[in-house]
Design a protein around this nucleic acid. Sequence first.
DNA 1: AAATTTTGCTTAAACGGTTAAATTATTAGG
DNA 2: CCTAATAATTTAACCGTTTAAGCAAAATTT
Lengths: 332, 332
Amino acid sequence: MKKKILIKDIAEAAGVSSALVSYVMNNKSEEARVSTRTAERIRRIAKEMNYQPNQVAKSLKSGKSFSIGLIVTDISNPFFGRLARLIENESNIEGYTVLFGSSDENAERAHQLIDTLVNRQIDGIIIVPAAGSENQLKYLSEMNIPFVLLDRYFEDIESSYVVIDNFKATYQATRILLERGHEKIGLVRYKSDLKHTVDRFLGYKKALEEEDKYNDGKFICKVGYEDMDSFSKEFKMLIEKGVDAIMFSTNTLSIRGLKMLKKEKIKVPDKVDVFCFDQNVSYDLFYYPISYVKQPLDLIAHEAVRLLLRKIYRKEDYQEKIVLNPEIVKKI
Amino acid sequence: MKKKILIKDIAEAAGVSSALVSYVMNNKSEEARVSTRTAERIRRIAKEMNYQPNQVAKSLKSGKSFSIGLIVTDISNPFFGRLARLIENESNIEGYTVLFGSSDENAERAHQLIDTLVNRQIDGIIIVPAAGSENQLKYLSEMNIPFVLLDRYFEDIESSYVVIDNFKATYQATRILLERGHEKIGLVRYKSDLKHTVDRFLGYKKALEEEDKYNDGKFICKVGYEDMDSFSKEFKMLIEKGVDAIMFSTNTLSIRGLKMLKKEKIKVPDKVDVFCFDQNVSYDLFYYPISYVKQPLDLIAHEAVRLLLRKIYRKEDYQEKIVLNPEIVKKI
DNA sequence: AAATTTTGCTTAAACGGTTAAATTATTAGG
DNA sequence: CCTAATAATTTAACCGTTTAAGCAAAATTT
C-alpha cells in the first residue's frame, strides 16, 4: 500500500521546512520571499511525488472547503437532475465540489441535510426549499452561511434567489389555451402553499378571469406530493367535469397526466387539449405535439452559482433576487 | 451573527475539560469512566446549546469522513439519476453523505473527480468507470481506498462490482424479437470496448447466430458517445438496410431511437419492432407498448452500498462480484 | 566597520476535535 | 487513619495544513 504524500514528505525530500512547501504550493512564494531556486525545486519534487494536498486539513485551518451543498427535492426527477448537472458544471469550473441531497419536499429531511452539509463545512448552499423550512433559512442567515434559493422562495424571508416568473408562465400558457378556443380549462397542481405553486395558480386564474371563465376554480385538481395514489382519482374527476383543456403546473404532474390520458384513451387534443410544464424527453414521444413552459435551466444554474460564489467571496449581506422569463414553447 | 458552538464551549458551560465532552458525545462514557451525573449534564447542555460537531475536524483526526463519492457518467441521465437517488438513500441510512460527479464517459474527467474526492477524504467510492480508467482504479487499490464498480467492470482489474448479466439481457431480448418472427434484427450500440457494451453485443450476436441470422453484423449501428450528431445518419442507414426489428442497448439510445422512428414516421411495430433497454417514463407515452430490459436498480444500489461499507469497515481485501439478473419486461 | 535593511528560511501556534497517559479524587481494606 | 485500589477527570499530543513571528546570513547604507 502506497502511502499518501504529505507536505512534510516533500519538505524532507527538498531539505526545507514544511512552511516553505506550503507557501510554494499556495503560490505565495512572493509574499513569503521564497527564493526562486528553492521554489522551483519544491515544485519539481512535489510534482514528482504527485503531491495532493489534504483538503480536510486545509478546510479545518481555513474554514473554507471549496465545496457547496445542493438540496433538491429529488435528484431522480429529471428536472432536478438536469439542474444538478448544470450546477455541478458551473461549480467545477470555479473549483468547487458539490455535495447533494434530496429532501423529498420534507422539511424534517431538509433540516437534517442542512445540518449534515453545514457540519461538513460547505462554503454555501443552493436550496430548493421545502414547505415549512423557513426556520432553517433563518438559521443559515444567523450563522452567516451563504445560501441561494432556487425554484421558489419565501416572501417573508430575506434571501437571494433565482426563480422564473411563474405567474407569467401559466398566465401566458393559459392564454394560449384560451386562444385555441377552449372554454373549460382545468389546472392540475400540487396541494402546497409554496410561492411558485401559488403563482402558477394565480397566473392561470388571472388569464381565465380576464375572459370570465374562471368558474370559481371548479376545474382545479389539487394533489398531494406524497399521496400520488390519489392522483388518478382526482384526475379522473377533473376529466368527468368535462374540461376541454388542462394546464399542468409541474413536470411530474405533466407526465403523470399524459400517461393517464393515454391510458384512458382520452384523445389529445380532440377531447382535451394540454399545456405542460418544463421540458421532458417524453413529450417528444407523445402522439401529439406537446406545448410547454420551458425554464431556462442553464441560465438558472449559472446565476445560482454566480450569486452563491459572490456571497461566499464578498461577505456582503446584499441579497440578489433574480426572476427569469419562462419560455413558452408552442408546438402547434 | 451567531457563533458556532464548539466542544470547548460546552466544556466551559459544564465546567469540565473538553475531553470529557468528547467522550460523552461519542458514547464512550463507559470506557472513559465518565460519571453518569456528569455525562447527563454534558448531554443536556450540548442539547441546549445545539452542539453540532465539526465533521472536518473529526475527519482530520480520524481519517474517516463518513462520506462516499459517487461517480456516474451523467447525473442528468434519468438512469443514473435514479441510481444516484437510491444510493443516496442507502448511504444516508448508514450515516454517510454522498459527493457526486459526472465523468461524461471521459477518463480525464474521471481522473480529476477521483482526485478531488480522495483529497476530500471520502471513505470510499462507487464508480461507473469510464473507458480507459483502469490506471485510476489501480491507484485507488494502491492507496487502499475502497471502491465498488457499477454497471461495468474491467476483466483485468481485480475489484468488487455490481452489474447485471448483460449478455443474458440482450440474449433474451433478442430471442423474443426472433420469436416474434423477425428476420433482420438490428442492434444500436455505442462504439466502446467497455465490458457491458461488448456483453450486450455478444448476447445479441449469440441469439442471432443460433438462428443463423447474424449476417456478419450487417445490421449493427455503432454510435460514438460524444458525437451524437452522427446518430441520425447512422440510424437512418440502419433503417435503409431494411431491418424489421431493433434492439437498443442503452437507455439513451432507446430514447433517441424512438424519437427518430416517430419523427420519420416509421411505424412500430409494423415496419420495425423494437426492444429497449432500461426503464424510462417516456416508454409509457409512446404510441405502442415498449418491451424493455429492466435493471433492478434498487437492488443494485443496495448491494453497491453494502459492498462498499463492508470494505470500509472490515479492511479486508476480499472482492465481491455481484451479477444480478436483468428482468425482461415484455409488453406484448 | 558598524548599523540597518533585505533576503531566505524556520519555528510554533492554530484550526476543532480525539484519545492515551497522567493526575487527582474517592472509596475500600487493613 | 493510612495505604491501596478504583473512579473521575485533566493534560497534552496528534491529525495535515497555514501563517504570523522570529532569526540568521547576506546585502546595503552610513
